[in-house]
Design a protein around this nucleic acid. Structure first.
Length: 585
RNA sequence: GCGCCGAUGGUCCAGUGGUAGGACAUGAGCUUCCCAAGCUCAUAGCCCGGGUUCGACUCCCGGUCGGCGCACCA
């Protein structure tokens, strides 16, 4: 780790303290005893988070030409039934009566049987399976037969409206609220693939044991992009990221020795088939660039591919962005290939159509067999069976049109074979001109955890050095993210310096800067206060200011100072903020 | 959810069966014309509930919150 010797405390402990003391983040509801896994962002944290979200929006929404939406967090149950979350989030736990260990019942059953997806077994059947296979505690070997199987739902449940008519959940990911609105979003995008929809907002997980500050919480911010692509046309704008250097940790490397990273460019990753999907590679490259921009240490960042067993129920491939803090690797983003899992599920469960129309390059003519059943004949003949007969005829004509070539056609309805005169089916072969087909897009999902990213930015930028023999702590935040962009001080609060400084501060605020004003204590103390919350620039009004209208600007990281005219201050600060110039101390 | 450890001003800590002290921070003043200096004064605290006891911040039990390990992390 790059921290100076002498600081033995863990970064996590230092951040917890800094968070409370300087208003970045702290446990919520402490006056009432607190609730595990819920945090409040103080003024500095809220500003940092807002700037981070703006930076994400700029990169993944605006610069990519994607669309941002804002959907409810309260989600009716059928949506999550369709997406598979009601099943996947319902863990079945069983506790050993001897040693007290808690185990996932579905995992034990999978280990002991041929079942591969025991999670979908109803809880009431679980006990039977445990008895049939005489499953024992892997810890102490005691029998688990007759131990109660308890289900624990990781989603926060709620009721929508009075009574219990409409059960709902707080969304476990922002993604579903995008997928479920796909028909309208596709129409908005004029059905042209690829198009991307983003959303920044909270998701909820009723974690069994929240841990480590902002790393595992029960309400957490997410920034997600769902990119809908044509499976047959895999053409991301790769050239812009082809040369981006990646540190990849693919499945085979993890299996081999646990440490051999593949240090390659995006282009090489695709050429060598380390990353299979071009869109996934493109977004891994974008993410790597963006992490540079927001101040994440590239030496403590890697992209790790999920093992088959750890992938989410919807994913076909997934790469996590992971960062190192206090010696542990923490996931801060997942770049998943979700295939068409979600759209197919909603297409199946919902009334609407979750496909888009894709025109052929050239229209084609095809011969198609159709039926147009004569209900005037079928209705009286088959009574209430008639609709089923129609369904059977439609099914048959699409699979086996030859069956209609005789005098009559046979279909099976309710285990009964029925003979129907072909003349009553309206059978015909016609030649139609088709201009395209309906396809279901595949989904590429870059999904970023906001809170963990805020935490990482703090952890990777909390630095110490020595200035004039005094040790100093400072947050080397990128200017774009710093809660305060510039602090204004009068050297002394006397002789009119305070008045002048206040007017400079007011002018800078009017010019759109986020400004702090401080006239308390000596100048060095004020610099240190701003250093600790990451303010990149400090402007000091001194006696020369009263003479010639100049002030000093001081740089947080180098402590270099330069005198500039007050009139030039806004332009100079902007140039300093976006890196177009640096201070000549 | 299990096990171990912890909880004292805003923050970080010390400490005692007779209700507490430091450092830093904060506020006021003096000093100081550019990097946490010095001096004076001030504000401010024993996580919650029950038990033992004449008396509990201290001992015991339970809870809450936190750290670590296990499990979990769709």
């Amino acid at each position: 780790m790059s921290e100076a010797a002498g600081e033995k405390r863990r970064t996590g402990d230092r951040l917890a303290e800094l968070g409370k003391r300087r208003g970045f983040f702290f446990p919520s509801f402490e006056s009432y005893g607190g609730v595990a896994g819920l945090y409040t962002y103080g003024p500095n944290g809220a500003a940092l988070k807002r700037h981070l979200e703006d930076a994400w929006r700029d990169r993944f929404t605006v610069k990519e030409g994607n669309f941002e939406i804002h959907a409810p967090t309260v989600t009716p149950k059928p949506v999550l039934d369709a997406s598979g979350h009601t099943d996947a989030f319902d863990d079945m736990l069983i506790e050993c009566g001897e040693c007290g260990e808690t185990h996932r019942a579905d995992h034990l059953v999978e280990d002991a049987t041929e079942l591969e997806d025991a999670e979908s077994v109803p809880p009431e059947e679980m006990a039977g399976l445990i008895e049939d296979h005489d499953i024992r505690c892997p810890e102490c070997g005691a029998s688990l037969v007759d131990r109660p199987v308890e289900s624990f739902n990781l989603m926060f449940e709620t009721a929508i409206g009075p009574g219990d008519s409409t059960p709902g959940f707080l969304r476990p990911e922002t993604a579903q609220s995008i997928f479920v609105e796909f028909p309208r979003l596709a129409e908005y995008a004029r059905s042209e693939l690829p198009f991307g929809v983003t959303q920044i907002g909270p998701g909820y997980r009723n974690e069994i044991s929240p841990r480590r500050g902002l790393v595992r919480v029960r309400e957490f911010g997410m920034a997600e992009l769902e990119l809908f692509v044509d499976p047959a046309r895999n053409e991301p704008p790769l050239s812009s990221v082809a040369a981006v250097q990646l540190r990849l940790y693919p499945i085979d490397a993890q299996a081999a020795d646990g440490k051999s990273y593949r240090n390659v460019t995006v282009e090489e990753a695709l050429e060598r088939n380390i990353i299979q999907n071009q869109w996934v590679a493109y977004y891994v490259g974008l993410a790597r660039q963006w992490y540079d921009r927001i101040g994440i240490d590239p030496d403590r960042l890697r992209f790790r591919q999920h093992q088959a067993g750890e992938r989410a129920h919807y994913a076909t491939d997934c790469w996590d962005a992971e960062v190192e803090i206090d010696g542990a690797w923490i996931e801060i983003a997942g770049l998943a290939h979700r295939g068409c899992y979600d759209l197919a599920k909603h297409d199946e469960h919902a009334d609407d159509d979750y496909t888009v129309f894709r025109p052929y390059d050239e229209p084609v003519t095809v011969e198609r067999a159709t039926v147009a059943p004569d209900m005037g004949q079928l209705g009286p003949t088959f009574g209430e069976q008639a609709p089923a007969v129609v369904d059977a005829l439609e099914e048959l004509v699409s699979t086996e049109p030859e069956a209609f070539e005789g005098e009559s056609v046979a279909v099976t309805v309710d285990d009964t074979e029925l003979e129907i005169p072909v003349e009553h089916t309206g059978f015909s072969r016609e030649t139609v001109r088709e201009t395209g087909e309906r396809i279901m897009p595949e989904v590429i999902e870059p999904s970023f955890g906001i809170d963990r990213t805020v935490y990482t930015i703090l952890a990777h930028n909390l630095k110490q050095d020595v200035v004039d023999g005094e040790e100093r702590t400072y947050l080397a935040l990128p200017s774009e993210l710093a809660p305060t962009f510039v602090a204004v001080f009068p050297l002394m609060d006397r002789d009119g310096l305070g008045e002048r400084a206040r007017s400079v501060a007011a002018d800078l605020r009017a010019a759109g800067f986020e400004v702090a004003y401080d006239d308390s204590g000596n100048i060095g103390r004020r610099y240190r206060r701003q250093d600790e919350v990451g303010t990149p620039f400090c402007v000091t009004i001194d006696y020369d200011t009263l003479e010639d209208g100049t002030v000093t600007i001081r740089d947080r990281d180098t402590t270099a100072q330069e005198r500039v005219a007050i009139d030039a201050l806004p332009g100079t600060l902007r140039a300093l903020g976006n890196g177009d110039r640096t201070l000549q101390g």
